[in-house]
Computed example of a mutant assay.
Amino acid sequence: MSAGTPKTIAVFGAGPALGLAVARRFGREGFRAALVSRTAARLDELVATLAAEGVEAAAFPADLADPAQAEAAVDAIERRFGTVDVLEYSPGGLSLGFAPTPITETGPAELRGPIDLFLNTPVGLARRVLPGMLERGEGTLLFSQGTSGRHPLPMLGNVGTAMAAMRHHVLTLNAALAGTGVYTGLLSIGGGIAGSEVHALMDGAASSSDGPALPEVEILDPADLAGLLWDLHLKRDRTEETAGNFGV
C-alpha cells in the first residue's frame, strides 16, 4: 500500500445496528468500509447512508453461513480496495438458518448451522487474510459474539457450543501472532443491541402478555460497542472485551 492510501475495514455481518456503527467508527479514522451480508438491498442502503456521512463504502453480498461465499467476498474486496487491513466479523439478525437449541436437545444436526456461521466461516476468513497481513507486518482481526461462548446458557446450547469454539480459536490465534504486528480481538456482547432486528423482537415480546417472561437484558448502544472494537484495534492491550449484563 502506497503512502496516503486509505486503509480498509471489511465488516462481515453488516447491518443497520452494529455493522453500520463499526463502519462509521472506523470511517471517522479515514478507513474505507467493505460491507458484507446476505441482503444486497440492505447493503445498498447502508452504503448510501455512509456515503452521505463522508465514508467511502461498497457492498459485497455473501451468505456468511457459507464459508466459501464469505471467502469469495474477500477476493472481491481485494479487487476493489487492494487490501483488507481490518476484518470485523459480527454475524447477527434473525434469519440465521437455524434455531437456538437447549443443550439437552443439541446433537450433531443442531450444531451444523451454528458451527458454520460461528466457527467455520470466521476460521476460514482468518486463514484467507492472514498471509497478506503477515507479509505487510500489520493487520487486525476483530470478532463479536454473544456471551454464551463464555458462560453456560443452557437454552442456547448449540449456539454457545459453536461460540465457545470460536472464542478459543480467537484467543489462541492472538497468542500465536504475538510479535508479528497482527492482532486478534474478541468482543463478547451480553445484551440486546439497539436498532437491531433482535432488539425489535425483544420489544415485541416484552409488550405481549403471551409466553414466558423474558429476563432483564441491557440494551446496548451500537456506537458504544463499535467504540470498544476500535479501542481493541488501537490499543491491542487485551484479547477480549465484554459488554452488557447478560451472562457476563
Rank of each mutant, 00 (worst) to 15 (best):
W230N: 01
F246M: 11
L142Y: 02
L173H: 04
F81Q: 03
A68P: 08
I189W: 05
T121A: 09
V74L: 14
T106P: 05
M202Q: 08
N174C: 12
A58D: 14
I77D: 01
T106W: 03
L125G: 05
E241A: 15
E105P: 06
P154H: 03
I103C: 01
P102V: 10
D203R: 08
G107M: 00
D210W: 13
L46C: 01
L228W: 01
G13I: 08
G181C: 08
A243M: 08
L220N: 04
T121H: 03
T147R: 04
L94N: 11
A206N: 12
A109Y: 10
G139C: 06
V22S: 02
D85T: 02
E71I: 15
A175W: 12
G146R: 00
V217C: 09
G190A: 11
E110S: 10
G227R: 02
A62W: 04
E29Y: 12
T184E: 05
A70V: 14
F246E: 06
T161V: 14
G15S: 01
Y183N: 02
N174P: 07
H151A: 07
G190Q: 06
D66H: 09
A68D: 14
V170F: 01
A194Y: 06
M155F: 13
T239W: 06
A73V: 15
R32C: 07
I219K: 07
P122L: 11
P114H: 07
G227P: 02
A194M: 07
E218I: 00
P222T: 07
L96N: 06
G139D: 03
R79N: 13
I9E: 02
P108G: 11
R25N: 08
R112I: 10
D237Q: 13
L20G: 04
A57Y: 02
S2V: 11
R80H: 15
G132W: 05
E197P: 05
L142H: 00
R28G: 15
A72P: 06
T147S: 14
Q69F: 12
R24K: 10
G30I: 10
A70G: 13
